[in-house]
Structure formats: C-alpha cells, structure tokens
Design a protein around this nucleic acid. Structure first.
Lengths: 351, 351
DNA sequence: TTGGAATTTGTAAGCGCTTGCATTATTCGT
DNA sequence: ACGAATAATGCAAGCGCTTACAAATTCCAA
C-alpha cells in the first residue's frame, strides 16, 4: 500500500488555461490573499506590493474567475431582468434607464427575453437565480404561485415593473394600467364618442393588458354605457395583427367611432389598416395608443397616446432593487403617473 | 492549547439560505455524488433511488448553484451577446432568432447593451467571460486589438455578427455592408440621380457605418462621380438627429435629389424632416433606408430599403457559435445576401 | 533603544458542486 | 448456490477565490 497523497495538479497549469490567482501570486512572489486584496481592497495593501502584484496581473492577463469569486463571496453584483420580448421597443427605453442606473451603482444587468411564454420565463428565472443574480426584475404580476414560492424560498429580492398593483405579492415600481386606461376612456367619452372599440394585447398571463381592458370597461360603466358593448379584439402585439383587427372592427354592424389600442404598436397597425380601407383618421375614426414610444410621433398623423414614464420607471426600479439587495429589506412599491398626450388621432366623433 | 479542528458549519444550514446538494443528499439518505448523478446523468442511477432523490429535490425546492457547478464542471451552457443598443429594434429580430436557436440546443443567452461605448463593451466582455460564458457574440469588427488578445488568451470562442469581413481577425456571420450599399447606390445612379446625399450613423468604432459609407463612395467613383462630392452627415442613430441632418442637407447650394440613409431609423427621421419642410418624397426627393425593419413599412410612403436577413443571420450565428464551442474548432465565416426592397421612397429624379 | 500598537502579509478553511476511483450491492452462468 | 462480472453508490479531491485569524513587519513614543 503506497502512501496516498492528495494529487495536486502541478504548479505549471496546462498551457491553454486562463491564469489563476495562484499564478499571479507566484509570479509576484506573494500569497493569494494579498493578490485578492490588491484587487478588492487596494488600500489594505502597501503601494510597493500592490505595484508588483498589478504588474503580474497585467503581464499574465489575469481576470478573476467569476464563479469562484461568487462562491467565495456570495455576491455577484449582477441583476437579472426578464422581459417578454425584445422584438419591439416597448421595454427598451425603460430597460436602458434601468441598466444605466444599475451601472452607476456598480451592477451589471443581464437580460433575458421570455417571448411571452410563461414556461420560458420560469426557466429563465431559474437560470438567473442559479447564476447567482443578486436580484431580479420581472415584468407584470401574473404568474404561477409556485414561482413566487420558489423565489421566496431562494430568498431572492424581486421587483416587478410596468405594472403597479398595490396588493400584489411582489413589490412593484410601475404605473396604474387600469387607472391610465380609465382616464383615457373618460376623456374619449367626454369628447362625445359612444361606440367604442378596443384592440388589446393577449390578456392571458399579461396583467397589463388585462387591467387596461378593465380600465376601459370601468369608464364605460361609469359613463352609463354597457361595458359588454365594448367591441374588443385581442391580438398579439404586432402591427399586422392590429391591421387585421381594425378591419374586423370596422365590419361590425355599428362600427366604433373610436378605437382604443392597448399599445402604440397596435395603434399604428390600426391606423395603417384604417387608412388602407380609405377611412380618414381622425376625421371618421379616432384611434389612441399607449406607451408614447418614439413610433407614435413617427406615423401620420401622430398618435394620441398615453405617456408612460419609462426612463423614470427604469431608474426608480434600479434604485429600489438595489436597496432591497443591499439593505436586505422588503421592497417598497412606487406608483408613477401617466398622462394623455394629445396629438393627431383623437377628435370628437363626426356628425 | 485546544485541539484545532476544522470549523465546519453545522449540518443545519442557516434558515434563510437556499438548500444545497448536501441538504438534498441528507434528506434522501444518499451521497452527494448520487444526487449529482440523478441530476446530470439520471440513467446512471437506479430508478428507485432516483425517485427518492427527485422527491427530496422537489420538497426542498433545490436549484443547483450555478457558480459551484461551473467551477466543478467548467461548462455553463451560456452564451453571451453584447449589442450596441436595445433602444431601437435594429438588433432585436436577429437576436431573437439567435436566442431561439440557442435555446433549441440547450443554451441560455445573456445579453448586454454597450450603449455604443467601447469602454462599456470592454467591461461587459470581461463580465461575460468572467461569468463563464461558453462563447460570445459581438457586433461588428472594430475594437481595440487588446480586446482580441484578451479573448484569445482566455481561449474564448467569439463570433461577430452584422458584418461580414473576410480578412477580419474574428470569424463573422453577417452581410457585406460595403457591397450592399454599393449595389443600392448603383441602382440609385442608374435611375439618373447625380446629386447624392447620405445620412450615416457615427462611423467611429462602427465598421458597419464605415463600410456603408465606403460602399456609396465606391459606387459613386465607379459611376464617374467624385466621391468627395457626396454630401455626408454623420449622426447618432436617432430619428431626431436625422431630421436635423436632412434640413442641413437640403440647405446645401445644390441639394441632393436622393439621400441614402445608413439605417431605416435615420431614413424615417429624414423622411419626416423632409415632409415637415414641405418637400414631397419621392416626388422632389428620394430617400432610402437600410435594414428593412418593420418601421420601414409603417411610414408613409413606405421606405425603399435594403433587406437584411436578420433572422437567418441570428440562426446561423447560433449554429456556428455552438459548433465552435462544442467542436473546439475555429469559426467559419458566412456571408448572407442582402437585396433591395423597392417601396415608395425612391424614384428617378424630377425633371 | 525598545515595547507595544498598528499595519501588512500569510495560512488555510470553506463556498457547493463534479467526477475518478474504491467500495458495495446485484445479477448471472454454470 | 457460489464466485465472477457488472451495476450502483459512496468517498473525497479539487475547481479558484475570499476572508477570519495568525504571524510578521513597521512605526512611534518614551
């Protein structure tokens, strides 16, 4: 029986492998602890040593191994965000602001797109958690309770954006989709419209879409109209689908004089569709959007829409989430205000 | 002197911490190795045991710690992508296809936006490398040599997209920005235009923008015109800036009859600007875009533009990158074809 | 000078997982 | 029914880093 010694790989690492802390330490003639400190707390090391170490770091082209660092330190300075889509720009501006704010505080943002698929979202939540994200940003409140259980169990700080709901399970920084749409609808009614159509995104698993529809209906009811009389079309968030929907809507026995769209993207599709049908907007038909994306100013006529403070939302979300992560405290919800931007697609009904 | 024993934290982990392999093993009454095998190679474990283990996994809500797994296994099944911006949709469609293809092969995509800032990009490359990405997707070829050295040293598979350049240091899956723009310009010249303007994105650090400009100039030269006579404006990729540029362009002593834009976003801005000035497009002025984004079909008149096969590019890039990662072989470049889409903004010059 | 406080550096234990190898349980052939 | 072959499981060494804690060094006041 031979003496079994721990088999340590020889000090000379395999040629093609990235240099490790150990390599740097050896090259600089110090301990790994010192190298580590040079990198993480430079002032706990005397300048001369630091100099020497940094030189070896540079010479070897050393980059700390993140996985190892995470394991040892339990912090990643990484925030994960899962958005429904990158295809259109709905989330882009807010996310950009989110990322900038994060970066200012020394955090890196990793983004995943769930393609509006709850299964994919679940997967990606796990992926991000497993990768040690310090916190997560999710869009909207609607998802299986099981996911919330999981997140809670993992003790993971999570914030929801794009939807403010007081009583939701997770804290949220967002706006009141219901209230915003109700206000818009009230405005439309006050202009004299009575036959209202709506083109909404798919409401399944999408609380924003759902609340917006409910907001419209609430305003209708309050205005003495039958909410059930709302001519509603649900479609994916794509220009083409909205074009189809508007055709269908205008084919109703008593077509709407105003069509409320759940997003600017849909409104643009509706606008194009109407124009293709030879319908004058806003002369014969009013159309409204939601989001106030750049797009809404580009089309002719420019869209009357609901302004959402995307950048502020992103920034606030970043701040709140970092507070949660660093302060180890529950998140505080924050409601941002939206307002109607009157441009060219909404006027009182003809006649 | 007391007997110094390794201070191992008690088997009962702190209440609020995620369960580990160890916890599962203990709960299931097996070794950690067995649990690990259940997760990674289920058929190397007898069904009864597997059942038992999986039950504990579920009960505890266990998720493997990614960092630990990476450290031990050296593979992450993660691909990183760094794009210049998420603000507009230029990269969205291609990236979406990229992600889908990756997902089909069991990879997760992590995206970062560099905001067109080389420093930020460098940072993010390091972040992604350090996080153990198995491979990286970058946009365009222009960046400091130092970064390439680093990547090489890290032995990291990297692929470039959105730009195909034969002789570049990194392999690329993309299209020929130069050739595409030259072809478009030739077409415009063949229509009879002689005074050409161009609104380009900032070319610094952006080989796509640069090659597109050069393509235009090449066609000009070939067509017997002086490339230096090209009325060129460089601006950020924003609608507003293009609107400004078109105003400036039309203020030239001999204003252009055709303005070539480096992207659809710029073309839309130019179009809006021209229309605001009361210039009829294409009657008095032709405008062309680049990318064939959805946007180009939305404006009035719809944009004549260059179609880029974004989805195919994303898909191909994913396949190639995975080959590089799994096959440990150098990447092969692939050039995709673009073509002109004639819509409503390009006609022969008036008079 | 010199003792002790303050500062700098080193030692080594873990972090949670995978995996080569050793050990134990199971299955067969005869 | 029994040993050999085979399948299932356990043991424990690392992966590269951070960070208590210990050891060594430096600095100052007296």
């Amino acid at each position: 029986m031979t003496d079994r010694k721990p088999i340590r790989r020889s000090p000379r690492a395999p040629a093609n492998s990235a240099p490790t802390l150990d390599d740097v330490a050896r090259a600089a003639g110090v301990s790994t602890a010192t190298v580590s400190r040079c990198l993480n707390a430079p002032d706990r090391v005397v300048p001369a040593t630091r100099e020497k170490v940094m030189q070896s770091v540079k010479a070897l082209g050393y980059t700390p191994n993140f996985a190892a660092r995470v394991m040892a330190a339990k912090r990643t300075h990484t925030i994960g965000a899962i958005i429904p889509t990158m295809e259109n720009a709905i989330f882009a501006r807010g996310l950009q602001a989110f990322q900038e704010a994060l970066r200012n505080r020394g955090y890196t943002l990793l983004v995943s797109s769930s393609m509006y698929d709850p299964e994919v979202e679940k997967e990606q939540i796990r992926a991000l958690v497993a990768r040690g994200a310090d916190g997560l940003l999710l869009i909207g409140h609607t998802r299986e309770a099981q996911i919330y259980d999981y997140l809670e169990q993992q003790n993971m700080p999570v914030l929801v954006a794009w939807s403010y709901i007081e009583e939701a399970r997770l804290p949220s920084v967002g706006f009141d989709n219901f209230g915003a749409m109700r206000a818009l609808t009230e405005h439309i009614l006050s202009l004299g419209h009575r036959r209202i159509g709506m083109i909404s995104g798919l409401r399944a698993g999408n609380d924003r879409a759902d609340r917006r529809i409910k907001g419209v209906q609430a305003a209708l009811a309050q205005g003495g109209l039958d909410p059930a009389a709302l001519m509603l079309r649900e479609t994916p968030y794509e220009v083409e689908s909205a074009t189809l929907s508007i055709t269908s809507l205008m084919g109703e026995p008593a077509p709407p004089t105003a069509v409320i769209c759940g997003s600017d993207v849909l409104a643009v599709g509706a606008l194009r569709g109407a124009q293709a049908m030879g319908i004058d907007v806003p002369g014969q038909l009013s159309i409204t959007g939601f989001d106030d994306m750049e797009l809404s100013r580009i089309v002719t006529p420019p869209l009357t829409t609901v302004h959402v403070p995307h950048r502020e939302m992103g920034r606030s979300a970043a701040e709140e989430l970092i507070e949660m992560v660093e302060g180890k405290r529950p998140g505080r919800s924050k409601r941002l205000d939206t307002y109607i931007v009157s441009r060219g697609t909404l006027t009182p009904p003809a006649g």
